[in-house]
């Protein structure tokens, strides 16, 4: 573990709304299954930017390859109108997919399954485009096996691929370390146990990974209240928090979230 408290910095914690995009439209996945249409991604991203979002993430959950163009069009239009960083993910398989998305105007790409199946992709991509634009997304789930409890008091989380459908037998903390070594510039960490519950982020998972790697960690999955954002950034030691439904359904505005965090002593850009 690295002791960072002694370092002075004016760097703020980032609040990042995430839009799930299917066939060029915004949807919000609840536990990756139940989907509801909530609008135009370009307009939504512009709205969030105006409200003070620090970045925007688009996850393309379009199933068919033929409809990928709709997503690229969304990225192109967003980059023309929104002047905050845009991260895109979903369905990225290789270097040429990454190049296409970056050329379309994405600032960072988030790689999940392809990085698991081919870890050299992280290295190749970071060498080609720079670590700063390579985000490795990790979907992790707590391991409940009695064996792991007997052998270790520490919790363990397993990595899942294919949008959380397939366990791949990797320990999430180890995988995060490997991703960093391979050249990832950031980790987007989603707790599958908490995703869609609105009961808060998995703080133990977030803390375990954020303390292990020396690259920024974005906490994701479970935000239901502003307190949850605060917890992820303090107890969880995350550098950024990603949330979807609490912003999409108007429960809180980005500004309200930032004012709340500021009042509680978290450095945020307002």
């Amino acid at each position: 573990m690295v002791e960072r408290a002694k370092f002075l910095t004016g760097l703020t914690k980032r609040i990042i709304p995430c839009l799930d995009v299917k066939d060029g439209r915004v949807v919000k996945g609840i536990n990756f299954l139940d989907l509801k249409d909530t609008g135009d991604p370009v307009k939504t991203a512009a709205f969030y930017s105006k409200e003070g979002a620090d970045e925007v993430v688009f996850l393309d959950i379009t199933a068919s390859v033929e409809k990928r163009q709709a997503f690229l069009d969304v990225v192109i239009k967003t980059a023309e109108q929104v002047f905050i960083p845009l991260t895109v993910g979903g369905g990225i398989r290789n270097i040429s997919d990454i190049r296409q998305l970056l050329k379309s105007g994405a600032d960072k790409v988030s790689i999940n399954t392809a990085a698991i199946e081919n870890p050299t992709l992280i290295k190749e991509a970071s060498e080609e485009f720079g670590s700063q634009c390579i985000v490795v997304a990790i979907d992790a789930k707590l391991v409940h096996s009695p064996q792991s409890i007997v052998h270790s008091k520490k919790k363990k989380w397993e990595v899942y691929a294919y949008g959380g459908r397939k366990p791949v037998g990797l320990d999430a903390v180890e995988w995060a370390k490997k991703a960093e070594r391979s050249g990832a510039g950031e980790i987007l960490l989603t707790s599958m146990d908490m995703d869609g519950t609105t009961a808060g982020y998995d703080l133990k998972l977030t803390k375990a990974i954020s303390e292990t790697v020396n690259i920024p960690v974005i906490a994701s999955g479970g935000a239901g209240d502003l307190e949850h954002l605060y917890e992820a950034l303090t107890t969880g030691r995350a550098d950024a928090v990603l949330a979807a439904s609490i912003f999409h359904y108007g429960k809180y505005s980005i500004r309200e979230a930032k004012e709340y965090l500021k009042d509680r002593g978290i450095p945020v850009r307002i």
Partner: peptide, 8 residues
């Protein structure tokens, strides 16, 4: 010892 990239 600082997290890098300095991102944000």
């Amino acid at each position: 010892q600082l997290k890098t990239p300095h991102m944000g």
